[in-house]
């Protein structure tokens, strides 16, 4: 279980998070929605300790994340970055198998490669891409390699920052199914950021909407359509008119 209370973060005068309270149950899928630039990516980075919150507390299974032993803590996580963040000096398969080629989870090279190719297959990429460099792939393919890297060692908690942006509708469907499968079959906990309402309905157990640095609304996905909250309604229907101003 991940539990955030009163998390704030500013960059200079720019107050991005203004007191986030959020609970993500283990073995569930939480989807974060919210306008562009509201701090969704920053929120995930705060949990991982890539960005240090100014105030507030983040607990993972009742343990403060800042006190956790760093290596053991990070070994439980997988993260897909919004920009994929692949290492351009390494081949695609070496990116996917990064954890399997060094450190505590090191495996023999042939085995690591086999696992990498299997993970690539699960994100819809054939073995022929394994020996290419990331720069030789399209944006959507890079995104999927990033996804394969995030799930390579079957972590128990996985963060997906916009997993389906830049993908065609069919591929987006494949990725949605994959994320759902990871939660239901492998028992992982997932936090996904997405702007794609089809994805939200396909992936989410629960949804949280971020607005003006706070969690505006959170609840099970089944209540998303029926909630009277005008912010949520404007957002999920993509209306220009409403309480959320277009100029941000």
């Amino acid at each position: 279980m991940i539990e955030l209370s009163g998390v704030t973060k500013s960059f200079g005068p720019n107050q991005v998070l203004r007191g986030i309270d959020l609970r993500v149950e283990s073995n569930s899928s939480m989807v974060i929605i919210g306008g562009s630039g509201t701090g969704k990516s920053v929120l995930l980075k705060c949990i991982l300790g890539l960005v240090h919150p100014d105030k507030g507390q983040i607990l993972l299974n009742d343990e403060d994340v800042t006190r956790a032993e760093r290596d053991a803590f990070l070994a439980r996580f997988g993260m897909l970055f919004q920009g994929a963040a692949l290492f351009d000096s390494l081949h695609v398969w070496e990116n996917v198998a990064f954890r399997l080629l060094r450190g505590a989870q090191k495996r023999p090279k042939a085995e690591a490669r086999e696992i990498a190719i299997e993970k690539l297959r699960r994100v819809g990429l054939g073995p022929q891409v394994a020996d290419l460099y990331p720069a030789e792939l399209s944006g959507g393919m890079q995104k999927r390699v990033g996804l394969a890297r995030a799930i390579a060692v079957d972590p128990e908690i996985i963060f997906f920052d916009e997993p389906t942006t830049g993908l065609d509708p069919i591929m987006a469907g494949v990725i949605n199914d994959l994320i759902r499968e990871i939660v239901t079959e492998m028992g992982a906990t997932a936090m996904t950021i997405t702007h794609d309402m089809t994805s939200v309905r396909a992936i989410a157990d629960n949804v949280a909407m971020l607005h003006r640095g706070k969690i505006r609304w959170t609840g099970p996905v089944s209540e998303l359509d029926t909630t009277p909250d005008p912010y949520v309604q404007q957002f999920i229907h993509g209306r220009a008119e409403g309480p959320i101003e277009a100029l941000r």
Binding site: G78, M79, F87
Partner: peptide, 12 residues
């Protein structure tokens, strides 16, 4: 390009 952040999340 967040590759340094990615390294950290990969326990490196």
């Amino acid at each position: 390009t967040e590759q340094i952040d990615a390294l950290v999340t990969l326990s490196t």
